[in-house]
């Protein structure tokens, strides 16, 4: 039996976080301030996501943790072990078998279901921050729905680069009301945000939680004559052959040789296993 309360946080803290989550779900895309706790990991390492997961987990849950799509990076392993120790929940690498998935910077390729929850780790929750440094002013802009500045940013991109250059953390408009930063997921993943699962976003250092209930309308910002494109490398995965998954570019030798592989490791291995089965 662990010396910790279930999932590390005390019950009062969980209540506070759950209230913030409920508020976030009631106002999709709105950033709810919350009293972020000190966690046994530094800021910038997913404390927001961990606190949201900790408040959401129940003993029957099956947890999956991915970092840039992979289950086997240092951070994914650390966080998974953290919850194994403090919550004792089952863990899995298979997306389809998880009931709660904590992710950094990717949405799984497999379509998520209504009985699943996706928890995102968020560094900077405020999409307007780079153009308007004042928190007082950005709060007003959200409250008054003054989002002209967001399009100024996109305008600047097009005038400088000929296209909207933002390739990750691409801003979206939720239910026609709030403009939201989807966390640094590649823009390729933006269309997936209209999904059946509950999506929760936690920013520990910035102390904000926001949320999207199932089937929420999420539209990526663009111009009529420069429409949004969910683009990826024009390649198939060199390991499993998938043509429609987001790819990582991997340098394999000192001559600059490279391969492209699915960033979602579970997706890739499942496809490879399936191919082997069919071949057998």
């Amino acid at each position: 039996m662990s010396e910790y309360n279930f999932a590390y946080l005390d019950e009062q803290t969980k209540r506070m976080i759950r209230r913030s989550i409920l508020k976030g779900l009631a106002i999709p895309g709105y950033q709810v301030p919350f009293a972020s706790r000190e966690m046994p990991m530094p800021y910038g390492w997913g404390t927001g996501g961990v606190q949201v997961s900790a408040a959401t987990l129940t003993p029957d849950d099956t947890l999956k943790v991915i970092d840039q799509g992979a289950d086997d990076t240092t951070n994914a392993i650390s966080i998974r072990k953290f919850f194994q120790k403090t919550a004792g929940v089952n863990v899995t690498e298979k997306t389809a078998e998880a009931s709660l998935i904590q992710t950094r910077h990717r949405i799984p390729e497999v379509t998520l279901r209504e009985d699943q929850i996706l928890v995102y780790q968020v560094p900077i929750p405020e999409p307007l921050r780079f153009l308007e440094p004042s928190e007082v002013e950005t709060r007003k802009m959200h409250a008054l729905e003054e989002y002209g500045l967001m399009h100024v940013k996109l305008y600047e991109d097009i005038s400088k680069h000929g296209a909207i250059a933002t390739s990750y953390a691409y801003p979206v408009r939720v239910e026609g009301r709030y403009v939201m930063d989807p966390s640094p997921i590649p823009k390729f993943d933006n269309p997936k945000m209209e999904m059946a699962a509950v999506q929760l976003f936690g920013a520990g250092r910035e102390q904000r939680i926001y949320a999207l209930p199932p089937y929420t309308e999420v539209i990526s910002l663009d111009f009529e004559d420069y429409p949004f494109e969910a683009s990826k490398a024009d390649h198939a995965c060199d390991l499993c052959g998938a043509e429609n998954s987001y790819l990582d570019e991997v340098i394999i030798d000192d001559q600059g040789g490279r391969i492209f592989v699915c960033s979602d490791t579970d997706f890739c291995t499942s496809r490879q296993d399936q191919t082997k089965e069919e071949a057998a």
Binding site: G148, H151, V152, Y155, S159, F223, E224, D225
Partner: peptide, 17 residues
Amino acid sequence: GGNVGERLMAVGARHYG
């Protein structure tokens, strides 16, 4: 251009050209 266009975008202009 962005400075001049901002007020237009603030009142809903969505065509870059």
